[in-house]
Amino acid sequence: MEFVSPEGLRLDGRRPTEMRQLRAEIGVVSKADGSAMFEMGNTKVIAAVYGPREVQNKGQQINNDHALVRCEYSMANFSTGDRVRKPKGDRRSIEISLVIRQTMEACIMTHLMPRSQIDIFVQVLQADGGTRSACINAATLALADAGIPMCDLVTSCSAGYLNSTPLLDLNYIEDSAGGADVTVGILPTLDKVTLLQMDAKLPTNIFEDVMQLATEGCKAIANYIREMLAENTKQLEFRRDS
């Protein structure tokens, strides 16, 4: 199948290095301590953060000096086209939950909050490829909204390799084409990688190009998230003053 036409346009009209449209909203779940909704094209996820709060199940706490970070990922039944009831805690969800938890743990300053726990809930409202990345981006925003101390933002973006072209931010059709799919998560200010996943195989030189592209996507997302946070802070300031 032709995923990039000879004219250099993808199936949805993007060029290979273009991202889908980003949209974000902070504070969508008022009961939570922090929350955010994040959209990448037709992929739409919501994240809610509770904490830091007292550890509910003492048995889970391994290290007394650090806060416990928990994460739960789920997909809404209506998130894909066909409405199938998926059992909670399937392998894929468990894996993604773990990925998100580890990625977020890397930037949360857990040592500042001993004997406490932070819960991150992410749910996919609409899936169109790149849910993992969107969840991480939403979680970053929600954590920031909750005022949890972090050493940096974490942003994530995917990239793939189809028709001998590296493609940024795969949508569902491109994702299910069977090519390689590289998901990268970075700390943009510190310029460090916290997440790197790939399914399928790529030769090293091509992999480097694809990863480079994904990293650039992450940086673009980081800029967008910073703008969103600055805007949000301005509004908070405005509300406090009035």
Partner: peptide
């Protein structure tokens, strides 16, 4: 099944005519 696909509309697609001055060809492929 209902499928939702995004379409990104562009303003950088060249018309491919040499006498045209408004279109700037962005890539060498065209």
């Amino acid at each position: 099944k209902k499928e939702v696909r995004e379409v990104y509309l562009r303003d950088d697609i060249c018309c491919g005519v040499s006498s045209c001055t408004t279109c700037e060809s962005p890539t060498a492929s065209s």
